[in-house]
Amino acid sequence: MGSLCQRHTCSSRKKNRNQSNHIYRQWRHLCLIDLSTLPYGITDRTTAEGKTELYEELDLYSYSTKGTEYDPENPQKDASQPLGKKVFRGRKNYPPSKTTTTVTLQTLVSSFSSPRFIVSPTDVYNDGDTKSNSASSILQDTEGTPQSNSITMTWAEANGRLNTANSQGWNIPSKAMNTGCYAYKGKSGKDEPGSWRVPNSRELSMILVFAHELEQFSSETGFQKLYEAKAANYLSNGYWSSTEQSSTSYSLDKATSGLIDVNYGLTIYEGANKTSTDRNRLRCIKDIPLN
Rank of each mutant, 00 (worst) to 15 (best):
K185R: 14
I138W: 02
T142E: 09
S132P: 10
T130I: 15
N159R: 02
Y125W: 15
P193T: 03
D141C: 08
A176Y: 00
E192A: 12
S148W: 09
S201L: 07
G186S: 06
W196I: 00
K175H: 14
D141P: 06
S150E: 13
P193A: 02
T142W: 04
T179N: 13
E157V: 01
C181L: 01
R197L: 07
Q168R: 11
M177S: 12
E192R: 13
I138R: 13
T179S: 15
N159H: 08
T179V: 11
K187Y: 06
S167K: 09
E203A: 02
V119H: 01
M153N: 01
T164P: 11
G180A: 11
D191F: 03
G144A: 05
D127C: 03
I118Y: 03
R161Q: 13
T145D: 11
S174L: 04
Y182K: 02
D123Q: 12
M153Q: 10
S201W: 13
E143N: 12
L204G: 09
E192Q: 14
F117W: 05
V198M: 08
K131E: 15
N178T: 11
E157A: 15
S114M: 08
G180D: 06
S201Q: 14
S134N: 14
I151R: 12
E143V: 09
S120C: 03
T179H: 08
P121D: 00
S201D: 15
N171W: 11
S120M: 00
S174H: 11
L162H: 02
C181F: 07
T179F: 13
K190G: 05
R116K: 09
Y125P: 08
G180V: 03
S148H: 11
I138V: 14
N171G: 04
N126P: 09
S150A: 13
T122G: 02
A183P: 13
S167P: 03
G194I: 00
G128E: 05
S120T: 01
M206G: 03
D191P: 01
I118K: 02
W170K: 10
S195G: 06
S201F: 06
T142A: 06
T164Y: 01
Y184N: 03
T145M: 10
M206E: 14
S188G: 11
T154A: 09
D141A: 01
S114I: 00
M206I: 07
W170G: 06
Y125E: 09
I207D: 04
S137Y: 06
G128K: 03
G144F: 07
N166P: 11
S174A: 11
W155Q: 05
Y182I: 01
D141N: 15
I138D: 04
Q140H: 08
A165N: 02
A158T: 04
K187H: 09
